[in-house]
Design a protein around this nucleic acid. Sequence first.
DNA 1: GCAAAAGTGTTAGGGCTACACCCATGC
DNA 2: GCATGGGTGTAGCCCTAACACTTTTGC
Lengths: 242, 242
Amino acid sequence: MTQSNAASTHGAATGSDSEIRLAVSTVIFALRRAKHPSKKWEIVMPVVRRTRDPHEGKWALPGGWLRASEGLAAAATRTLAETTGLHPAYVEQLYAFGAVERSTTRVVSVVYWALLRADAVRERAELENVEWFAVDGLWGLAFDHDEIVQYALWRLQNKLDYSGIAQGFLPELFTLSDLREVHEAVLNKPLDPANFRRQVESTDEIVSTNEFRKGSHRPARLYRTNIEKGLANHGPLQPESH
Amino acid sequence: MTQSNAASTHGAATGSDSEIRLAVSTVIFALRRAKHPSKKWEIVMPVVRRTRDPHEGKWALPGGWLRASEGLAAAATRTLAETTGLHPAYVEQLYAFGAVERSTTRVVSVVYWALLRADAVRERAELENVEWFAVDGLWGLAFDHDEIVQYALWRLQNKLDYSGIAQGFLPELFTLSDLREVHEAVLNKPLDPANFRRQVESTDEIVSTNEFRKGSHRPARLYRTNIEKGLANHGPLQPESH
DNA sequence: GCAAAAGTGTTAGGGCTACACCCATGC
DNA sequence: GCATGGGTGTAGCCCTAACACTTTTGC
């Protein structure tokens, strides 16, 4: 697109400078039971250890180079699967980072952020060079990845309010308490169960089933996500194919 | 970043495929007085005529190729100035478009969207191959630019609610009626002057001056944008340097 | 004075918050 | 029965929309 625009005065019409390389990375969020009993869940994410310079030995976001034959979102899911073996439930583009000084060589990174279902986390294989950390005290990542993770977390927290994005953490069937606990974990504050129930029921983001989860107390009704709506509204933008 | 990640199984560690080129384009919105008296203002944007294939003769978003020595936002403002001579008041990254089939050659476009002050529009030179169109009935642009424009418009409309972004259309000093008319033009619906006044006054996005605009009626107090806040909140992300 | 825009006041309704209260289960 | 989470009811508060009303100018 817009390659070699007519009115461009300089316009390197032969193409972009060949030294610029295009990477695709992904910030993947998942939940795991918190050790500390003050909160039930904490947000964790997998990072990959770098085995060469620059930033050898440091932890970095999973990712890789974009191939000419694949779209951006496809590259994100592919490189994520290759480096971590994970298949997220929700993927969305976060931002394109392209400051000159962010690496020793010139790299533009299109970063995606993703959510992992609780059941997908359990299935993950323990891979060499992949480690899971709580997002809370996560610093010292390679390149500008610290900043990227904070921005992704901010987007996640904002998106909770006006979308059903929290369901991306949950399996197909879930209770309203499950959903509320996800919100509480992401927002880092307790929510009133009664009001939370009414708020999500007033939207059409979930549909009730006639199944119940029996446990140690009164059985809770199970819900599933409303496939009509999807987890988030992206406006007129077509969803990218993975 | 994330170049040649350790755990990558394939990992073209030498770099991305050289056939992929990286373009930067900008959707610039401005206001001009509407011909039809039903509305006072209409949203317009400049497009550039293509003089070579693909899509020769069609209108396209202003843009160009990213250079190795400049950041993404800097490339956006540079190519915008080169193709249209314009210098926007507000610039924000919109999205990175990278579907394989969006052009005959493989091009990834990082698209920005921008707002032009009313006074900057007046100063614009009439350039060869640059034309201004109302966004309303704007179709038939080159590549996937139709879709991109619609998405940018959607972002602009959404952002009006929770930010002072509308001030990006206005000169340094403006009345509350000016600001309201911008909102009305973007949202395409009339707003109650009384309620609008209270809403924007309750935020700290504008600061009142002691100057007034004298005209055909009661003088209106002039306001300016609150530089402390900026026009929009981008969370933990550093503003890109242009 | 009159028209028209600037600016203030007021009221009804909806949504949100806090919290009291009942329901159904395991033990 | 009792503890615990599931689920409903409700009153106060704030924000908003609608619209009546006053103020200040040009002509």
